[in-house]
Amino acid sequence: MAKIIGSPSRYVQGKGELKNLCAHAGNFGKKLFILTSPSGRKRVEPAIALGQGDAEIVYEAFNGECCKTEIERVKAACQAAGSEVIVGIGGGKIHDTAKAAAHYLGMPVVIVPTIASTDAPCSALSVIYTDEGVFEEYLFLPASPNMVLVDTDIVSKAPVRLLISGMGDALATYFEARACLQSDASNCVGGKATLAAMALAKLCYETLMTDGINAMLAVKEGVCTKAVENIIEANTYLSGIGFESGGLAGAHAIHNGLTAIEETHSLYHGEKVAFGTLVQLVLENAPEDEIAEVLDFCMEVGLPVTLADLGIKEVKADQIMEVAKLAAGENDTLGNMPFAVTPEDVYAAIMGADALGRYYKGE
């Protein structure tokens, strides 16, 4: 099987870049269909208007869930508007909805993150949930977005918890890519990992360890430092290319299993992925110093390391086993681990990770 790496046609990151959206998107069409939240529109519309020029813009409010019902609604609204380009502005679920709708309509798509909370912007993938918010399936797309534009002034002013969540999502990138390389599993674009993909995945982890704490502290102060710029790139581009072209394994499967527990629905994607990373390392029986580094980082920036941190105050064995069964399902990515994994193995790893987290926290 061939080695394949996927990436957006163009990645643009810088302070104040939102005002250049219409100029960049003009390479694909002048009639823009912008999918965003009502609050997101208030944040971005003034900057976009500065550089609108002769572009025609229709704004559409996102209904809150990347599900088949919402994708169909967005498709219909875009067609009715006669738009030429779909632009998804906001967080991961808006991005995934925009990408899916554009795919089904055969239209170009531009992704504009206003937060750095996931690695969804650069990927040729949409994560589909039910109308109630439970993971349903991955929709693998034939191409990455035509363009990703990141205005770091906008992103750095978002709540710090969102940046931290993005670091949780990015934290899994190298470990999952490494597992896929060891098992010779296929990546998310239908090939094997390239040297470039593995290098980006490793750089993603190294950037988190080097700049993560400094970036968190800067965003708490409402400023965009070089460390913040680096973490935004790590969360968005390095993680996005790294996970897609390196592959997914245990951490994201654990995240998907955790969606079955209602108490975890208030947590962000990356917060659950961070705990999933710890569970994957326990599954692998990773070296103690590696696990310790991940635990120390998570506790320092405020990512979950215990089930209680995930909102699960009363741990029920049957509930955790349901998480394990869902994570180990045929349609998920635990099969990419370099050894066979049963639901019982996953259950033990979840409980072991929780015990480690409580031990390190002194609980």
Rank of each mutant, 00 (worst) to 15 (best):
M1K: 14
A2N: 09
A2V: 09
A2Q: 09
K3A: 14
K3H: 15
G6N: 13
S7E: 11
S7D: 00
S7N: 09
R10N: 07
V12S: 06
V12I: 15
V12F: 13
Q13C: 07
N20F: 07
C22I: 02
K31W: 02
K31Y: 03
I34C: 07
P38W: 01
R41F: 04
R43H: 09
R43K: 13
V44T: 11
P46S: 03
A47C: 03
I48G: 03
L50Y: 03
G51T: 01
Q52Y: 01
D54N: 14
D54L: 04
D54Q: 15
V58T: 15
Y59Q: 04
G64V: 08
E65K: 10
C66S: 10
C67T: 06
K68Q: 14
E70I: 04
E70M: 00
A77C: 07
E84M: 04
V87C: 11
G92A: 01
G92Y: 03
K93P: 01
H95I: 00
A101Q: 08
G106K: 07
G106M: 03
V110M: 00
V110I: 08
I111E: 01
V112A: 00
V112M: 04
D119Y: 09
P121F: 00
A124G: 12
L125S: 03
V127T: 15
E132C: 00
E132N: 10
F135C: 01
E137N: 13
E137R: 15
L141E: 06
P142E: 09
S144E: 05
P145Q: 03
V148K: 02
T152R: 03
D153N: 14
D153I: 04
I154C: 10
A158Y: 06
A158I: 10
G166C: 07
A177V: 13
L181E: 15
Q182H: 12
S183T: 05
G190C: 11
L195D: 12
A199W: 09
L200H: 11
L203D: 15
E206W: 11
T207A: 14
T210Y: 04
N214E: 13
K220Q: 15
K220M: 13
G222R: 01
A227L: 12
N230D: 15
I231V: 14
T236A: 02
Y237Q: 08
I241S: 05
G250H: 09
G250M: 09
H252P: 12
H252W: 05
A253Q: 12
I254N: 08
H255C: 03
N256Q: 09
G257T: 06
L258W: 02
A260E: 06
E262K: 00
H265N: 02
S266T: 15
Y268E: 11
E271C: 05
E271P: 06
A274Q: 10
F275Q: 10
G276N: 09
G276F: 05
E288C: 04
E288R: 10
E293A: 15
V294F: 09
M299C: 08
M299P: 00
E300D: 15
L303Q: 07
P304W: 06
L307R: 12
L307I: 06
D309R: 05
D309C: 01
A317W: 01
A317D: 15
Q319D: 06
A327I: 08
D332W: 09
G335P: 00
M337K: 11
M337R: 13
M337E: 06
P338G: 11
F339H: 12
Y347F: 15
I350S: 11
M351A: 04
A353I: 08
A355V: 03
L356A: 03
E363Y: 11
